[in-house]
Amino acid sequence: MTLVLFSAPDSVWDEYRDVLPRAIARAGVEARIIRDDALTDPTEVDYIVYAPSSRLKDFTPFTRLKAVLNLWAGVEAIAPNPTLKAPLARMVDYGLTEGMVEWCVGHTLRHHLGMDQDIRRNDAEWHPHVPPLARWRNITVLGLGALGEAVARALVDLNFRVTGWSRRQKDIGGICCLSGDDGLREALSSAEILILLLPLTDNTRDLMDRNRLALLPKGACVINPGRGPLIVDEDLIDALDSGQIAHATLDVFRTEPLPPEHPFWAHDGVTVTPHIASDTRPQSAADVVAENLRRGETGEPFLHLVDRSAGY
């Protein structure tokens, strides 16, 4: 019998209590799931289903561990852990992908069409304006992983002119794919709307500082559903105040929940959403976990393994 430790807060377990056992059974795996408070012998654990908000930080006692299966797409809270020697898989599933696509496309269209100036008008005056067609709007997506590529493809399908940038060179039909420092400058210089979908690593932290924000066309919009520390908060506020950036729609922040005193809340040029762009949905995520358990037990390669040296 395969022993699976579900290491996450009670609120997370409540969401998976029913759907995860059913998904594991459908995958044909005979497994027993235990919680942290029921763990008596770490050496008997085969797999850990893990939320980075878990109290578990030392993996050394888990000498039989075959893999850690992360419930979130982001792994920056666990990937650098020196005590973790087993393979680490991040969460990639259709729920995360479709949720991110819908959120990003929605806010891209909002900025592209200038919806805010129509919705917020309360002066009883007629203010007609005609936005450009999507084919005349330049969108840049930083990060072409599973989520970034899906968002970029959806925008291409709407006829936007899409440029994508990634650390490694990609080749995706319909998308101008760039990489490297020169490619980043080129990608930013055309970005009327910039979407940040990069993982958080030592190389991407504070990426969008005042110098890179200055590379954007004047009046650009920034959309960040990726990671809060990709942007230097103070530099973004300065760019908004100067008019270099017209608006920033932010779903992720350095501190979450975003503190009430943070200037983002009161700034007219900032839209704050409470980390809702894409969340792990138990119904779809449980199937991914179950499939990786099946693969581990049959000797097949795990899905969505993390490159620990790259941090994602």
Rank of each mutant, 00 (worst) to 15 (best):
D209Y: 06
L133Q: 14
I245M: 06
L200W: 04
A290H: 03
L198E: 09
P131Y: 13
L196M: 14
V19G: 07
R90F: 03
A214I: 08
S309H: 14
A79E: 05
S54T: 03
R205K: 11
A239W: 04
R294G: 04
E300I: 02
A154G: 10
V222H: 02
T108F: 08
D58C: 09
V105D: 13
I172N: 07
V75L: 04
I193V: 15
M1I: 11
V232S: 01
A154M: 10
L71A: 00
E300V: 02
A239F: 04
D202T: 07
D58L: 11
P87W: 08
N81G: 11
R161D: 08
G95C: 01
P282Y: 01
L215T: 10
L158I: 12
L200I: 02
A248D: 04
G180W: 03
A266K: 13
D241E: 15
R294D: 00
F6T: 07
I139M: 09
A134P: 09
I119W: 12
G143F: 10
A285T: 02
G180L: 05
T249C: 11
E102T: 13
L207G: 06
I119R: 15
L144V: 08
F59T: 01
M115Y: 11
V49H: 01
E300A: 14
E149D: 05
S11I: 07
K170N: 05
R26W: 05
L147H: 08
D171W: 05
R212V: 12
E30K: 14
L196A: 13
G243A: 09
G226C: 09
V12F: 02
P82R: 10
E291T: 03
A214E: 14
A246Y: 13
D202L: 07
A187R: 03
I24T: 02
G148L: 11
R254T: 12
D202G: 06
P217Y: 11
I78T: 00
E297G: 06
S309Q: 15
W72T: 06
I172T: 10
Q117M: 14
V19S: 11
D14Q: 15
